[in-house]
Structure formats: C-alpha cells, structure tokens
Amino acid sequence: MSLSKADVEKVASLARLKLTDEELSTMTRQLDQVIQYVQQLEELDTSGVQPMAHTADLANVFADDLLRASLPRDAALANAPKRDDECYLVPPVLGD
C-alpha cells in the first residue's frame, strides 16, 4: 500500500491542517516511508491476541460526585485568543 497526495490532502483536512504544495509533497514522501516501515507488523500473526490499549492493570476508577470550586471566569478566559467579558469568540458557527 502506498500513500498518494490525495490521501494526504484528505487527512490534512480531517486533522484541520493546511499544507502548502511543497509541504504536501514532502509530507507525502515522509509519511509513505513511515507507513511502508510500519507495514512490517503484517508479518506477525496476531490472531487471538487481545489488543492492549493500557498497560495499567486497573479498572473502576471513580471520583465521588462532590462539588469543587470552578475557575473564576476571568481565569478561565485568560488564555483565550479572542473573548468578550463572558465568552470565547470565534468566527460564525454555521448550520446548527
């Protein structure tokens, strides 16, 4: 399997990145190289092997439903690139 520029462009859109034509070429070449390398995993027979998403052998970790102080609004909004007194601001959200 090898990666085409169109594949990379689609992924860039999915990941909300905008690549210049030059970046797109370099990225396609480099990603393809890594993908080719990674395909060596196909050699292994992993049938019957349980996927391992965590190494921590833990389950049922909960916190009690007890209120803690929230951030003061100014502290919450302090890092916002654009805001008013109450909210974060973004270009119009279209649709719903």
């Binding site: 990674v38 995993l41 196909e42 292994l44 992993t46 092997v49 349980q50 996927p51 391992m52 998403a53 190494t55």
Partner: peptide, 13 residues
C-alpha cells in the same frame, strides 16, 4: 494499523 499495533504491543509486554 492501530488495532494491529495494540496487539503487537501485547506480544511485546
């Protein structure tokens, strides 16, 4: 890719 890698991860462990 992803699920396969998680399985190999188990083998490594």
């Amino acid at each position: 890719y992803y699920v396969k890698a998680l399985k190999v991860r188990r083998l490594i462990r």
